[in-house]
Design a protein around this nucleic acid. Structure first.
Lengths: 148, 148
DNA sequence: CATTAATGGTTCTATAATAGAACCTATTGA
DNA sequence: TCAATAGGTTCTATTATAGAACCATTAATG
């Protein structure tokens, strides 16, 4: 083993994405960031992650431009980790993960946290893949065109 | 370290999903499965993954119900790994990953494979998170309600 | 102020996961 | 019948992770 295989230069956007946020912790960190978690200690407590790993994941996410470091909002000398626009772009990903988990990873009647619309308190519509004209598509309606 | 931390029993669907498909290879295997890859050797060649790891990932995905083993379609004695309905449910996830990668992980002008509608050859619409009434939402319009 | 406690790390060791090669067996093709 | 291929298993070396211990700053308390 030279090194864990990297997909940094892959032709496939799925692979490149996974190279950035495809490890065990990154998406959970991003999820927490969407939930308003900002401080090192908050992440650590929320995730139950070791400090060393958290440090390395936060550094990587900052380096990749998913998170940014900024002065803490409470006026203290500490710093906050906040989502950049690139990080906010992961919102559909998180929602997709959540909706899939809700449907396929819980028994009937088993409780879980839910994502709701702030204004109405109602849960969201299921994500749908659509054509450019708005028609709902499933996987069989699509095709990957490799680069030539 | 007792064992790699598991999210199997998490209250959060995002965490449970990641427990199933959140490792380095599983989503790439699923991506390939959507692209029509079915045979052990095809996965191995396409991914450049070690055989040992591929074996363990395929077994895990079958155990989780994402893939199923069936007799090869060509009449040979080998077997195919195909997506179950649970696996097909990951389609929006893969599309989300792909679209995020396209936007944020490539330089302008850099080539990548593209996902198109089979019938028209046109690329897909960007995924949108919507309220139950169909309004487009961003992260700030939503809220996670923890279980009590 | 001086002292203590909390925050945000770094460093260390043990264990688990991964990469990659070598090997093995059943099936297929010649 | 024999060689080649597909599909694994096993082995070793290396890397990543978990978790504890430690340390430096900052913030809170007397």
């Amino acid at each position: 083993m030279v090194k864990r295989v990297s997909m940094k230069a892959a032709d496939c956007p799925v692979a490149r994405s996974l190279d950035v946020i495809g490890d065990w912790w990154s998406l959970l960190i991003v999820r927490d960031a969407f939930d308003g978690v900002r401080r090192f200690g908050e992440f650590q407590k929320s995730l139950g992650i070791s400090k060393g790993i958290l440090t390395s994941r936060l550094l990587a996410l900052v380096e990749f431009g998913v998170l940014a470091v900024e002065p803490a909002s409470d006026g203290s000398a500490w710093q906050n980790y906040v989502l950049t626009p690139k990080g906010e772009g992961l919102f559909p990903m998180i929602v997709a993960l959540r909706q899939w988990g809700e449907v396929f990873c819980y028994e009937k009647g088993e409780a879980h946290s839910i994502l709701i619309e702030r204004k109405t308190g109602k849960s969201l519509a299921p994500l749908r893949v659509r054509s450019s004209s708005g028609r709902v598509l499933d996987a069989r309606d699509t095709l990957v065109k490799k680069i030539s």
